[in-house]
Computed example of a mutant assay.
Amino acid sequence: MTTTSGRRAETTRESRRLLITAAAGLFAERGYRQTTFEDIATRSGVSRGSIPWHFGNKEGLLGAVVEHVVAELEPPGTGTLGETLDALVEFTKSPSSKLFVTLIAEAVEPDSPLHKWYADLHRALRGQVSAWVARADLPDGVGVEGLSTVVLGVIMGVHQQWRIAPDAVDLDATYATLGALLRSAGVT
């Protein structure tokens, strides 16, 4: 038998999940600035007043969305280069990844609330890539931090190109090329 407080806690978790899912989808489709609490409430089926109760404000909701998407990422250090690149192709094709491309334009503006979240996201992603790259015996003059930044930049750039012109970018071939380059640098 479930207690009243147990049902309430489950309802709260479910409402929070629905709000994060709705916000992530809307932020990816419309951008952060163009999405309202009303839009999120309508899509989620959760009352508009629940948003500030759960997240404080729109920026708090954005933080929860970014944390949720980052938590879903598999750390690249867990598999071989081939497995990691395969996972990367799948992530690039996922609906969640569209969020990153949509929000980057707003994030580059210094006064944007997205600026801080993107800086934190990039730091977290570079950390994941660094953990994976650190396993390699890198050539002289190639450091873990530098290579991690380059790899993340390539991934982000390929992702953006593919989102804008999917018929012009072959993800499998492009990531296979990245894999060949990384293997030549000693990353396996």
Rank of each mutant, 00 (worst) to 15 (best):
K58P: 03
R135K: 15
E74I: 15
S97H: 14
I20S: 02
S94C: 09
D120M: 08
E74K: 12
A9Y: 03
A23Y: 09
S50V: 01
G143H: 06
T149M: 07
R30Q: 09
F55T: 05
V46I: 07
P95A: 06
L61S: 05
H122I: 13
G79R: 10
G179P: 06
T36A: 04
S112A: 04
F91K: 10
Q128E: 12
A22Q: 06
Q161M: 15
H159D: 12
A185F: 06
L182P: 08
T102S: 13
E38A: 14
V158E: 11
L85K: 04
T188M: 08
Q161V: 00
R123G: 05
T12I: 09
W162M: 04
G153W: 05
P75V: 11
G179Y: 04
R30W: 04
E38G: 08
D137T: 12
H68G: 02
E67S: 11
S112K: 03
V46F: 00
L99G: 06
A180M: 10
Y175I: 03
T174V: 10
D86R: 15
S94A: 15
I164N: 06
T188H: 12
T42W: 00
V65Y: 03
R33Y: 07
V142R: 05
A176N: 09
L181I: 14
V158G: 04
T174C: 12
A168W: 00
L152D: 03
T36I: 07
P76M: 06
A131N: 14
L103I: 05
K98M: 06
P95S: 10
V108Y: 10
F91W: 14
T12R: 14
V187A: 13
T2L: 14
L138E: 06
Q160S: 14
L103T: 12
T102N: 02
G63K: 10
L62A: 15
S97W: 12
D86Y: 00
S50F: 04
V158S: 07
R48M: 08
S148V: 06
V142I: 15
L99F: 15
G77N: 09
H122N: 13
T149L: 13
S15G: 00
L61E: 01
D120S: 11
F55Q: 08
T12W: 10
G179E: 02
E145K: 12
T4R: 10
V69P: 00
D120E: 13
Y118D: 00
I20P: 03
L18K: 15
L114P: 01
E14V: 08
G6M: 07
